[in-house]
């Protein structure tokens, strides 16, 4: 069943027929969601789609390249406000999103340069400083942030006769799927191998000819591009952007999503995104206890599954594959 007959077959994304079947089923369920779920559910799943983009970007930087970063809120804000200003100028949404990603990516390059020689906690502090600096700039600059009321992002009219929320949902899903595919492709290419080489042993990576400067910066740029697009999509969904959406807490949430989902796995990134969106929602009826419940559930996952949700998923799969033996 799993017989591989050529090197080419081995490099396919969907390497087993069953995998294709399950992915097809999942996509089908996601496509039918607007008929199955209510407005609120559609909104939540849109959020998960949007979030998973940024978490994947984070995972490329933290999980694959091994560079810790805590300044994601800065890139989110840059992406969101870039999209906001561009769409107010009448730029089409897709171009606006591209602009949001590119603007964030450019800042990723700027931040990445001084951070090249930093490692571990030092890098975390440096990027943290960036996130807070961006927040302060937006808070204090009326022209950038659009004043006290925030920046209104014009809604674009739904196409194909869909309702507003369903259309935004499909749009986020489409972009989420595209970015997921791109993540899989990047990490299985020579670029991904170079990233992992830097994480596992930077001295050896350099000795076999991997240009550390280039690939570290590339990782920064790619992850900030992802985060910028996430920011842009978030602004679109909300209909407005204001600096308080992008506090330090937002960076931490993205970081948690990476760890909870599982370092260095794309599937895990999506699970992590779902976790940080849905878990607070499950506890939402307890009001002020939400952060506590969220915190405890994070602790539980990390204690019982240090490899994150993806690690647990692999174990579940193994259990059923071997069933009824164990």
């Amino acid at each position: 069943m799993d017989l591989v007959e050529s090197y080419k077959d081995e490099m396919r994304l969907i390497d087993k027929p069953w995998k294709g079947f399950w992915i097809g089923l999942l996509l089908m369920a996601l496509l039918l969601l607007p008929w199955l779920g209510d407005e609120y559910m559609i909104y939540m799943v849109s959020l998960v789609c949007i979030y998973s983009i940024g978490v994947q970007g984070q995972n490329i930087l933290i999980g694959y390249t091994g560079q810790i970063s805590l300044g994601q809120a800065g890139f989110l804000a840059i992406g969101a406000f870039t999209l906001g200003h561009l769409s107010r100028l009448g730029v089409p949404v897709l171009l606006g999103l591209l602009g949001a990603g590119l603007a964030a990516g450019l800042f990723g390059l700027v931040v990445g340069f001084p951070c090249l020689r930093l490692k571990g906690p030092y890098l975390a502090i440096a990027t943290l400083g960036f996130g807070i600096a961006v927040y302060e700039v937006f808070v204090n600059s009326q022209t950038l942030s659009g004043g006290r009321m925030g920046l209104i992002v014009p809604k674009f009219s739904p196409l194909f006769g869909l309702s507003g929320s369903a259309f935004y949902y499909y749009f986020s899903l489409l972009i989420g799927v595209v970015f997921t595919l791109v993540s899989f492709n990047i990490i299985s290419s020579y670029i991904g191998r170079a990233f992992i080489a830097i994480r596992d042993n930077d001295i050896a990576a350099e000795a076999i000819g991997v240009n550390l400067t280039f690939y570290k910066l590339l990782s920064f740029v790619v992850s900030s591009f992802y985060t910028g697009v996430q920011g842009g999509l978030y602004g679109l969904l909300m209909g407005y952007v204001e600096p308080n959406m992008f506090t330090f807490l937002e960076s931490v949430t993205l970081f948690i999503a990476v760890i909870i989902g599982g370092l260095a796995s794309v599937e895990g990134s999506i699970m992590g995104a779902a976790f940080v969106i849905l878990v607070p929602h499950i506890f939402s009826s307890y009001k002020e206890l939400v952060p506590v419940a969220f915190g405890i559930s994070i602790l539980l996952v990390l204690i019982f599954e240090p490899l994150g949700l993806y690690g647990r998923w692999l174990k579940i799969r193994l259990y059923f594959r071997n069933w009824p033996f164990r």
Partner: peptide, 12 residues
């Protein structure tokens, strides 16, 4: 080159 103490990419 190779290294005296092996330096491979352990998780690959």
């Amino acid at each position: 080159r190779t290294f005296q103490n092996i330096r491979l990419f352990n998780n690959m």
